[in-house]
C-alpha cells in the first residue's frame, strides 16, 4: 500500500510540472499563433494612420516633406469649395443610399420570406450585382442615364418627346444618379442580411400573436421588425461604410462632373494627393474621412460591447 501510494505521489509530483508546462503552453500557444497577424495589423493599420495623420500636419506637396505647419491644411480644406461640395454630396448621397437600401432590403426580404417557389434562384439573382465592380455598375448606368443614349432616348423613340431625364448632366441632380446606381448594387446584399434575420425570428411568438387575432401588418410592425433591430444596426454600419469609401462609382459614372458637382471625399482625396500634388491637403481630407467613420463606429462598438456584458 505504502509503496504504491509512494509511487503514485511520485509520479504525480513528476507529472505536475509537466502538466503545468502544458497548461502554460496551452495558454501561450494561441497568443504565439496570433501575434504575427495582430502585429502586422497593428503596425500597418495604426502605423499608417499615424503616418497619414503626420503628413496632414505638413506642407507636403508632390513629395512628403516633414515640415510641420500645424493645422494649416485643415483650415485650407474647410475653405476649399470643392471639399465642401464633396462633403455635402456625401451627406446627401449617404443618407438617401442608406435609407433606400434599408427600406428596399426589408421589403424584399419580407416578400421572399413567404415560402415562394424558386427562392434559391431568386436569392442568387439578387446577389449578382454584388459580384460586379462599381466600375461596371457605373458604366452600365451611365448609358441608361445618359440623355442622348439611354432611357430618355428610348422614351423619345416611343413618341413621348416631352419626356426629359437629364439628371446625369444636371449639377443639382447628379447625386441622385449615384444613389440609383449604388442602391442597385447593394440592396440585394441588404436583402440577404434581412432574410437571414427574418429566419431567426421566434416563430412561437408570431403564432401566439396570430392566435390572439393580430393582423399580419400589426405582427410585422410590432413583433418582427423590432426583433430585427440588430440587423438594421449592422446593415446601417456596413452601408455607411460603403458610402464613405465610395470612389469607383463616381470615377466611372460621372468622373466627378459636371464640373466637380458629384465629387465624393474619396475622389477629392485621390485627386489632390496623386494628380494635383497637394499631398498634405489629401492627407488632411483622409483624416477627416477617418473621423467620419469613427463617429459611426464608436456608438456601434459601444453598444456591441455593452450587449456582451449584459449577456
Amino acid at each position: 500500500m505504502n509503496n504504491i501510494d509512494a509511487v503514485q505521489t511520485l509520479s504525480e509530483a513528476k507529472r505536475a510540472p509537466l502538466a503545468r508546462i502544458q497548461d502554460r503552453l496551452a495558454d501561450w500557444l494561441p497568443k504565439l499563433v496570433l501575434t504575427p497577424t495582430l502585429l502586422v495589423v497593428l503596425v500597418c493599420m495604426y502605423g499608417y494612420i499615424l503616418w497619414t495623420g503626420l503628413l496632414s500636419l505638413t506642407n507636403s506637396r508632390l513629395l512628403p516633406v516633414w515640415n510641420f505647419i500645424g493645422t494649416g491644411q485643415y483650415d485650407r480644406l474647410f475653405d476649399n469649395d470643392r471639399w465642401l461640395v464633396a462633403l455635402n454630396n456625401l451627406v446627401l448621397f449617404g443618407g438617401l443610399f442608406i435609407l433606400v437600401c434599408l427600406a428596399l432590403g426589408v421589403f424584399l426580404a419580407i416578400l421572399l420570406d413567404q415560402k415562394i417557389r424558386q427562392e434559391g434562384a431568386l436569392r442568387t439573382i439578387y446577389l449578382y450585382p454584388m459580384a460586379i465592380s462599381f466600375i461596371v455598375t457605373g458604366t452600365a448606368w451611365k448609358w441608361l442615364l445618359n440623355p442622348s443614349l439611354g432611357l430618355e432616348k428610348l422614351v423619345h423613340s416611343w413618341g413621348f418627346d416631352s419626356f426629359s431625364f437629364d439628371w446625369l448632366v444636371d449639377p443639382d441632380r447628379v447625386v441622385f444618379c449615384l444613389v440609383i446606381a449604388a442602391v442597385w448594387q447593394s440592396s440585394g446584399f441588404v436583402m440577404a442580411m434581412f432574410l437571414a434575420g427574418l429566419r431567426g425570428v421566434d416563430q412561437e411568438m408570431v403564432k401566439a400573436a396570430q392566435l390572439d387575432g393580430a393582423s399580419m401588418p400589426t405582427i410585422y410592425r410590432r413583433i418582427i421588425l423590432p426583433s430585427l433591430k440588430p440587423v438594421f444596426f449592422s446593415a446601417f454600419v456596413i452601408l455607411a461604410h460603403i458610402a464613405i469609401k465610395s470612389f469607383d462609382l463616381v470615377a466611372a459614372l460621372t468622373g466627378g462632373g459636371p464640373g466637380y458637382s458629384s465629387d465624393l471625399p474619396a475622389n477629392f482625396m485621390y485627386t489632390h494627393a496623386f494628380t494635383r500634388a497637394q499631398m498634405g491637403l489629401g492627407a488632411a481630407s483622409a483624416m477627416v474621412m477617418l473621423g467620419g467613420v469613427l463617429a459611426i463606429l464608436v456608438p456601434y462598438l459601444y453598444s456591441e460591447l455593452r450587449g456582451k456584458r449584459n449577456a
Binding site: M45, K245, A266, A273, M279, K308
Partner: peptide, 21 residues
C-alpha cells in the same frame, strides 16, 4: 472576445487613409 472584435473593426477604416503610406 475584445481582440476578435477589434480585429474586425479595423476593416472599417477608409482605404484613403492608407493610400499615401
Amino acid at each position: 472576445k475584445h481582440l476578435f472584435f477589434w480585429l474586425l473593426t479595423n476593416r472599417m477604416a477608409p482605404p484613403a487613409v492608407f493610400l499615401l503610406p
